[in-house]
Simulated scan of single mutants.
Amino acid sequence: MPTTSAPTGTTVTARGLTKRFGLHTALNDLTLDIGNGVTGLLGRNGAGKTTLLRCLATDLDPGAGELRIFGRSAATTADRTTIRRQLGHLPQNPSLYPHFTAFGLLDYLAVLKELGGRRARHDEVRRVLAAVALYDRRHSRIRRLSGGMRQRLALAGALLGDPRLLLLDEPTIGLDPEQRIRFRDLIAEFATTRTAVLSTHQIEDVAALCTRVLVLDEGRLVFAGTPAELTAGARGRVWSLPERPIGGTTTWRSPDGRYRVLTPNSTEPPQGYEGSAEPVAPTLEDGYLILTGSAGAAAPDRP
Rank of each mutant, 00 (worst) to 15 (best):
residue 177 P to F: 11
residue 153 L to E: 05
residue 253 R to I: 04
residue 84 R to V: 12
residue 116 G to F: 11
residue 129 L to C: 09
residue 186 L to K: 07
residue 85 R to W: 05
residue 273 Y to F: 13
residue 277 A to P: 00
residue 143 R to N: 12
residue 135 Y to Q: 14
residue 92 Q to Y: 04
residue 164 R to M: 11
residue 152 R to T: 04
residue 180 R to L: 11
residue 76 T to D: 13
residue 40 G to Q: 06
residue 201 H to G: 01
residue 10 T to F: 10
residue 208 A to I: 09
residue 175 L to H: 01
residue 202 Q to E: 10
residue 97 Y to N: 07
residue 225 G to L: 14
residue 266 S to F: 12
residue 157 G to A: 14
residue 295 A to R: 03
residue 131 A to S: 13
residue 274 E to L: 07
residue 278 E to Q: 09
residue 96 L to R: 03
residue 202 Q to C: 06
residue 15 R to A: 14
residue 56 L to T: 05
residue 297 A to K: 15
residue 94 P to A: 14
residue 75 A to F: 06
residue 120 A to Y: 02
residue 106 L to Y: 03
residue 221 L to K: 02
residue 92 Q to H: 08
residue 108 Y to H: 15
residue 191 A to V: 13
residue 261 V to D: 00
residue 303 P to S: 14
residue 269 P to D: 05
residue 44 R to L: 13
residue 22 G to E: 03
residue 251 T to V: 14
residue 178 E to I: 13
residue 134 L to I: 10
residue 63 G to Q: 08
residue 53 L to G: 00
residue 24 H to F: 10
residue 296 G to P: 08
residue 132 V to D: 03
residue 222 V to K: 02
residue 6 A to T: 14
residue 99 H to Y: 08
residue 224 A to N: 07
residue 190 F to L: 10
residue 99 H to Q: 08
residue 30 L to Q: 01
residue 14 A to Y: 01
residue 168 L to A: 09
residue 66 E to K: 11
residue 77 T to Y: 08
residue 155 L to E: 02
residue 163 P to M: 05
residue 217 D to Y: 06
residue 214 L to R: 02
residue 22 G to I: 09
residue 49 K to A: 06
residue 174 G to A: 09
residue 47 A to G: 02
residue 237 R to M: 12
residue 183 F to D: 04
residue 295 A to E: 01
residue 270 P to C: 11
residue 214 L to W: 03
residue 12 V to E: 07
residue 165 L to C: 12
residue 112 L to W: 06
residue 260 R to A: 04
residue 244 R to H: 08
residue 265 N to V: 12
residue 237 R to P: 05
residue 209 L to M: 14
residue 83 I to W: 01
residue 179 Q to E: 15
residue 41 L to C: 07
residue 188 A to N: 09
residue 299 A to C: 12
residue 29 D to G: 11
residue 214 L to G: 00
residue 170 E to H: 07
residue 131 A to G: 06
residue 229 E to L: 15
residue 208 A to M: 07
